[in-house]
Amino acid sequence: MKSENLNPNYVNSRKDSMIGGEDGSSENASSSTRAARPSSFHYSSHMLTVALAKGRMQDEALALLGRAGVEVSGEALASRRLAVEDAEGCYRFVFVKPADVPVYVEHGIADCGVVGRDVLLESEADVLQPLDLGISRCRIVVAAPDGAAAHDYGMLHVATKYPRIAAAHFGARGVPVEIIQLSGSVELAPVLGLADCIVDLVETGQTLADNGLRVVETITESTGRLVVNRASYQLKAVAVARLIKALREVTTAVESKA
């Protein structure tokens, strides 16, 4: 879905099928168009579609929403469905890969989303970020093997899942780097000699330590954020404000306790 949405040709082909309807199959064509983007027809200013990043973020976000009075039945969650509604019918939650949350929100397919700041920085998505939820707290760091001359940067080979963040970080320091983009197990790259260091998300640092890596510097902190589509923020103002208010109350409660 992600690549389809970002690919301009996707829209071309969608329109193709619509115009194809003129040959007599217009009914089929328009219904297939409808199926392609169902939520576009969802003009209700009451119900919000919220994209949650799957994994730990999803669990913590749902727990936070539960405290804010938004209940999602355990049964619905256990069903492994990718879209579930809350008990009161105010929200529809869709569960997508973290990197896809800003995509859905930026296109307005989802009105809101919960996703880590790391993903937002990397995606450079044009979305509103009204609330830091303080969940899934971790750091984006530069890590290198023990004993490596960390600041002796000549030409650095950096392995990462975050090519933009890494390039911006070293670029700001005037360090020439070659970014090697990986999609997982980034810690392995320095061990096997693919890269001198890595830029990655670190929670406890255990995985780093297990692979003989040490944090050289922290680029930035990352926490779960509430993000909102720009158009939805205006067009579903009441519903969005209600969600922000409910979540703000429970996040500040957590902060003051801590």
Binding site: H107, G108, D126, A231
Partner: peptide
Amino acid sequence: DLGDVSGLDYYTGLVFKVYVAGAGSR
């Protein structure tokens, strides 16, 4: 919307944006 602060170097007074239900951006 006092939060609409795009295009500050260009505009000198009133600014406005148009949103329509069904379009994900302005």
